[in-house]
């Protein structure tokens, strides 16, 4: 049964996954071509200096990419379930309703995480060619909130899409917009370091909220 559930979810999101990886790869190629170009024309020490002391982020092109990917994966996975209330088919399968929702959601989250790990892994490998480890570490710390925003977006959009009432959808969307915006405020390198743990914990809590929409759907809210 798990195999069947994962099979269906993969059919829904596979195109988005490949596109997301392609976009990530293109963004990374863009970043490192630019870095290589700038280091050739400025010199490495000056380039590093502008990163460490002037807040120059050579990877800013990645800022909204995780958000867009999280949004796209959530829509690809949950929108087809909401069209014609197709989620009824899923809840009618001979498994626990919460159980199947958790498995679907976990699959989407793991796929999203996998995309992010690949992008961050390639970013780290590419950065290692041009930068010392402390710059790479600071870069990753700066980017981490953006990728957390991608996860949070995925969880919140799933909650919104499965919610049966438009008024609740609106409220959730407003809350989601307010929360996700937090991840993009502040420009200085590593500024989010003190709040990374609480933001991560809140994002983890958000991973479960989709069950509430599922419950409301099953109780016939409309």
């Amino acid at each position: 049964m798990l195999k069947s559930i994962l099979y269906k979810e993969w059919i829904k999101i596979r195109l988005v996954v490949w596109i997301a990886l392609g976009l990530g790869l293109l963004a990374l190629i863009n970043i490192f071509l630019k870095v290589r170009h700038d280091i050739m024309f400025v010199d490495a020490a000056n380039y590093w200096y502008s990163f460490l002391f002037r807040g120059f982020t050579y990877f800013s092109i990645l800022k909204f990419l995780p958000f867009v990917i999280g949004l796209a994966v959530a829509i690809a996975q949950y929108f087809p379930e909401t069209v014609n209330k197709r989620i009824k088919l899923t809840f009618h399968l001979p498994v626990s309703e919460n159980g199947i929702l958790i498995k679907m959601h976990a699959f989407g989250a793991v796929m999203l995480l996998a995309i992010f790990v690949v992008i961050l892994g390639l970013f780290t490998a590419g950065s290692a060619i041009f930068f010392p480890s402390n710059i790479i570490r600071a870069s990753l710390l700066t980017m981490l909130p953006w990728f957390l925003a991608g996860m949070a977006t995925y969880f919140m959009v799933a909650l919104i899409l499965l919610e049966p009432m438009w008024i609740f959808r609106g409220l959730y969307a407003a809350a989601a917009a307010g929360f996700v915006t937090i991840f993009f405020t502040g420009a200085s390198i590593g500024a989010f370091r003190p709040v990374l743990l609480p933001l991560t914990l809140i994002t983890l809590v958000l991973s479960c909220v989709v069950l509430f929409s599922g419950y409301r759907f099953r109780k016939g809210e409309m």
């Binding site: 049964m1 195999k3 069947s4 099979y7 269906k8 059919i11 829904k12 087809p80 014609n84 209330k85 197709r86 009824k88 088919l89 009618h92 399968l93 001979p94 498994v95």
Partner: peptide
């Protein structure tokens, strides 16, 4: 498992083809 359910309008997982949907349901 003992109940077959046909939703109004013959709604099914329309993003699948006939092979995929048969493979999906057979697992349950």
């Amino acid at each position: 498992r003992r109940i077959g359910f046909l939703i109004e309008g013959h709604i099914q997982y329309s993003f699948m083809n006939i092979h995929q949907i048969e493979k999906f349901y057979s697992g349950f």
